[in-house]
Amino acid sequence: MEQFEPKLVAFVCNWCTYAGADLTGTSRIKYATNVRIIRFPCTGRIDFMLISKAFANGADGVIVSGCHPNDCHYTSGNFHARRRWMSYNAMLTFMGMDPERIIFSWVSAAEGAKWADIVNQSVDKIRKIGPFTEYQKLVQSGIEEENFNG
């Protein structure tokens, strides 16, 4: 059987992780191709609904990454984001959605190697967990079954 290749979306802040991922590039450190990076000005801008939209649209995992505490370009965006993620994690857990599919990390502009590690680890992890079929099933189900007009 062919190996499952997960789809990951990374929500990263412009000042730390995006720059860190740039550094990964300039350092020519290789990592898995399974991730697509989306640039935000700050982790504080990352709406939990975007994460949920990513899952609804077929992502198997989501990486969220920004500046280390105290290093936020905007001072406190990452602190607010951290609380949001804690709450989101708690909610997902309670609803029986595996919060393991969301990987939160701090990657600074200087941590090009760490970014590569985070991506590779995350891809490995999601590969093991498998496709997010529970969620993707929700997307498919509902109308046709109930209406008998598939």
């Binding site: 505490p69 602190f79 607010h80 949001r84 993620w85 709450s87 939160f104």
Partner: peptide, 28 residues
């Protein structure tokens, strides 16, 4: 966060405030 809603008239709800030492063991 140690916050309970509806205990004071001040705007200090859980998601509009933070503490620098909020727990973050889930963050890599």
């Amino acid at each position: 966060f140690g916050v309970r809603a509806g205990t004071s008239m001040k705007a200090d709800s859980a998601l509009s405030t933070y503490k620098p030492d909020d727990k973050e063991n889930f963050i890599l």
